[in-house]
Computed example of a mutant assay.
Amino acid sequence: MPDSRLLVYLSGRERKSISRFILSQDGKTSVTDPMERLNRAEVTVYDEEVGRGQGGVRFVSLSLNTLGTFNGYCASRDLVIESARELNTICIYSPDGSFARTVCTFGDTVDDIKAVQGMDRGRTSMRLKMYDDFFAVVHFFRDEGRKYVRLFSYDGRPLAQIEIPVDVFSFDFDTRTGTFYTMDQKTEVILRHDVSALLESIRKLPESGMTASGQ
């Protein structure tokens, strides 16, 4: 972040939420409106694990991964991207609070996250990566046996999706040459794909004014 500030994430009370705040060099903390709204989101879903250790103690492990995210920061646009692992929710906001948008399938706004009654373990988001004109996230639909790399603009518009084999867990774009790389986790084979036409079409899209806040 600019001015050597840090964006800090902490596990919330009883591990049912995640707290965010900005830490400055002088040790002062601040929370902007988009961060405050995200901090209020809680989940009540949990996994019960029965411990078989000494005394037969029973452990309850709350599903912090339900709110767990892959995080990134775009310095040129001063935007934070949070892609939720199991809620299939993408939150985009500026640390100063001037822009905030949530792209999600569960509910219409970030405030509706707490209304989710259960996790959809058949669907997982992962591998957030950011580039000059877009960011990309892997969406894995386990029940369907399908996996996609989905591309979004920095104002949250879906731009494209590329279907990839389910064994691929690593990818990258070389936007200079228009190349898309994938690596199979089992064989470690790296494949190269020409996506120059797709990336060129994304570059030609008009920029959004990005004035939305609190969406």
Results as ranks from 00 to 15, higher is better:
213 S>F: 12
205 L>W: 02
174 D>A: 04
214 G>N: 08
64 L>Q: 12
161 Q>Y: 04
52 R>Y: 00
61 S>D: 07
211 T>D: 10
152 F>E: 05
112 D>H: 12
67 L>P: 08
138 V>L: 03
121 R>T: 03
164 I>C: 02
62 L>F: 11
51 G>L: 04
45 V>Q: 13
151 L>I: 09
74 C>R: 12
103 V>C: 02
214 G>C: 06
4 S>C: 06
212 A>E: 13
44 T>H: 15
180 F>N: 01
113 I>L: 15
113 I>K: 06
136 A>F: 01
161 Q>T: 06
142 R>S: 10
56 G>F: 14
122 G>C: 03
26 D>V: 09
85 R>I: 14
174 D>S: 08
21 F>L: 11
23 L>P: 06
11 S>K: 13
212 A>L: 11
128 L>W: 03
11 S>E: 14
5 R>D: 13
210 M>H: 06
121 R>G: 10
63 S>V: 07
155 D>K: 01
191 L>R: 15
171 F>Y: 13
20 R>V: 05
112 D>P: 03
193 H>R: 06
136 A>E: 00
34 P>S: 10
203 R>I: 01
198 L>N: 01
130 M>V: 02
119 M>Q: 01
130 M>N: 00
143 D>M: 07
150 R>I: 08
29 T>Q: 14
106 F>I: 09
109 T>R: 05
196 S>V: 01
147 K>G: 02
37 R>T: 14
29 T>E: 13
63 S>C: 04
183 M>C: 11
78 D>M: 07
53 G>R: 00
74 C>E: 14
83 S>H: 04
150 R>S: 11
138 V>C: 06
111 D>F: 04
134 F>H: 08
50 V>C: 00
